[in-house]
């Protein structure tokens, strides 16, 4: 939240379900968070934690049979989770841009990137073809594509992986959205390119005042980019707070274990901290705190009651270690 407490995006008690033959699976369970204008919120977790599903629910692109089964999503105070498809399509693109892991699937291989950019701009902004093309070239220059006037007429396959991801970012920014949902935007890229893309996203958001929801499994990317971070585990938020707090003094035992399990170049350790076991499958989430079977500090209550995020100096942590009476 920024100084005057305005919120661009509010997610309240979001619940995403997957009906399946063997019963309903809850992929996202009672998740709440806000993003302020211009803020970068990192959402981190291991595969199956529900982070991508949360992003997909916000941009209205949940793969069926997945569906929002509860809670609400507000953009600028307006509910967007219950909009009809056509209206949501206009919100997506105009107000919310999306960047995905694989830049190839985000671009149509049959059209030049210029055509795709111009089409998006004309659809969402009150602009003629010519002005839109000028804006497209400007965007391509912005995202660091050399010789943009020439490259605009090239097809996606004529770009390298890193350059393609830049094009996707230009596409996401083309209608000047207020929020970008970026799902693993650097995972498919090499380390050196990864650093370039992170720097680019950071710079563009600063310049355009765009807020970003950055979904990734890579704590390093979060540490570099995010203002705040939400750590997800088994469909719920385990901990959410300023990035410095979460990275440097994690409070939730899961976050602590996660941070300890990442090898770091600055320190030489004989053994990495390891969290034994694996994240539970959606059809076998344990009673109480979902992390309790893997938690070294679990006690009686953890195995019975499910903790909700509670305020712990500046952050919110879903852990009974911080509950009343402890």
């Amino acid at each position: 939240m920024d100084a005057n407490g305005t919120k661009l995006l509010e997610v309240r008690n979001l619940r995403v379900e997957f009906p399946s033959r063997r019963g309903t699976l809850v992929a996202v369970d009672d998740v709440s968070f806000d993003i302020a204008p211009g803020e970068v919120l990192g959402v981190v977790g291991e595969s199956g934690a529900g982070k991508s599903m949360t992003g997909a629910a916000i941009i209205g692109l949940l793969e069926p049979p997945g569906r929002i089964a509860g809670g609400e999503i507000l953009l600028d105070g307006q509910r967007i989770d219950n909009l009809p498809y056509e209206k949501m399509r206009r919100v997506r693109g105009r107000q919310i841009g999306a960047i995905f892991q694989d830049p190839l699937t985000a671009l149509n291989p049959l059209y030049t990137i210029g055509r795709q950019l111009v089409e998006t701009i004309v659809t969402h902004l009150d602009m003629g073809e010519r002005a839109a093309r000028d804006r497209a070239i400007q965007l391509l220059q912005d995202v660091g594509i050399p010789a943009a006037e020439r490259r605009i007429d090239h097809y996606p396959h004529q770009f390298s992986g890193g350059m393609r991801q830049r094009v996707v970012i230009a596409l996401a920014l083309s209608a000047n959205p207020r929020l970008i949902v970026a799902d693993e935007p650097t995972t498919a890229l090499d380390v050196s390119i990864q650093a370039q893309i992170i720097t680019l996203i950071k710079r563009l958001c600063r310049e355009h005042g765009t807020a970003v929801m950055l979904v990734t499994h890579d704590m390093g990317v979060i540490a570099e980019t995010a203002d705040r971070v939400a750590v997800m585990y088994a469909g719920r938020i385990a901990e959410i707070g300023p990035v410095r707090d979460v990275v440097r003094r994690a409070r939730h035992p899961y976050t602590e274990g996660l941070m300890g399990s990442i090898p770091k170049i600055g320190e030489t350790v004989g053994r990495l901290t390891q969290i034994d076991g694996a994240m539970p499958r959606l059809d076998a989430i344990p009673r109480g705190c979902a992390f309790n079977p893997r938690c070294a500090r679990a006690f009686g209550r953890c195995r019975i009651d499910r903790p909700d995020p509670m305020d712990v100096d500046g952050a919110r942590v879903a852990c009974w270690l911080y509950g009343e009476g402890r």
Partner: peptide, 24 residues
């Protein structure tokens, strides 16, 4: 040197990073 510079800074030490140019 370039590869080492490109690693995200998990310690958040504020180490300055040389921007890496170009691709393979």
């Amino acid at each position: 040197r370039m590869l080492l510079d490109a690693i995200p800074d998990l310690e958040m030490s504020g180490r300055p990073r040389t921007p890496v140019a170009g691709e393979v």
